[in-house]
């Protein structure tokens, strides 16, 4: 299935990736090629097949509700580009 430049732009926005005009063109071609290859799957009738979400036959993996101390705050913040008052600083939302 072919994908359009406009779709590439929408997807890039959803994925929060700023693309150059050139990248948009290249990705449009490349994604089209990959998706056309993926269309091969349509050769298979999977009407009656259940999707396989988890390869392991395991269920109910749970932990007990017991508090464990986390790392000191300096560690959590140690890789942050900008910090203020023990918090991560980000530019305005809107």
């Amino acid at each position: 299935m072919a994908i359009s430049v406009k779709q590439v732009e929408q997807v890039a926005y959803l994925a929060r990736l700023e693309l150059t005009e050139q990248e948009k063109q290249i990705f449009t071609q490349q994604l089209t090629a990959i998706l056309e290859y993926a269309d091969k799957l349509n050769e298979l009738d999977t009407e009656q097949v259940e999707p396989l979400h988890h390869i392991l036959p395991i269920y109910n993996v749970m932990r007990e509700d017991v508090v464990q101390p986390g790392p000191p705050r300096e560690e959590t913040l140690s890789n942050a580009p900008l910090v203020e008052d023990g918090q991560f600083k980000v530019p305005r939302i809107i």
Partner: peptide
């Protein structure tokens, strides 16, 4: 068309 279809094929392969 894509993701779910691929998961079904995954089962066939398994």
């Amino acid at each position: 068309a894509y993701y779910l279809k691929a998961l079904k094929v995954r089962r066939l392969i398994a």
